[in-house]
Structures are given as C-alpha cells and as structure tokens.
C-alpha cells in the first residue's frame, strides 16, 4: 500500500516541481523567481519526508529541520536588495 502512496506522491511532487521550475524560467520579475525557488525547496523537503516514510529511516530529518528553519533567508535577502531604481 505504501508503494502506491509513494507513486502518487512522487507524481504530484514532480508535477509541482516542474511547475515551479517553469515559473522560475518564465518569471517576469526576480521576485517571482525567488518565490518559485522557495516553493521548490519546500517540495524537495516534502519529497525527502515521503522517502523517509516509504523506506522507514530518519536520515534526512536534519536536512528537513534545517531547510524549514533557514529556508527563508534567501528570499528575504534577495527581496531586501530589490529596490525601485527610479526613486533611489
């Protein structure tokens, strides 16, 4: 049963990740790209969690905790330095 769940989750996560990559490529502004990369990191963490559940181990737990804790630093840093050049 868990194998079927793994297939379904894998397909859904892959489609979500592909959509994020398309948004990162297309994105009209750098903020859209940062948002897409943020969601991509979340999807990778979710995939690691599903892998831990399917294969019954806890090897990736530290990465998931770290990604949840400091994953916001990238988008905050990028959006901090995006400014309106006409008013600056």
């Amino acid at each position: 049963m868990i194998e079927i769940v793994a297939w379904i989750c894998g397909i859904m996560l892959s489609l979500g990740a592909i959509a994020c990559v398309i948004r990162v490529i297309k994105g009209p502004s750098i903020l859209d790209r940062v948002l897409g990369l943020d969601v991509l990191l979340l999807i990778i963490s979710a995939g690691l969690c599903v892998d831990m559940a399917v294969n019954r181990h806890t090897d990736y737990l530290l990465f998931v905790v770290a990604a949840c804790t400091i994953g916001f630093v990238g988008s905050v840093t990028v959006s901090r330095y995006v400014s309106d050049k006409r008013n600056a």
Binding site: G16, C20, L42
Partner: peptide, 8 residues
C-alpha cells in the same frame, strides 16, 4: 505541493 505549483 501540486496545488502550489499549479497556482504559481
């Protein structure tokens, strides 16, 4: 996650 990708 799929919903987030579609929404993006």
């Amino acid at each position: 996650s799929l919903i987030a990708g579609i929404g993006l």
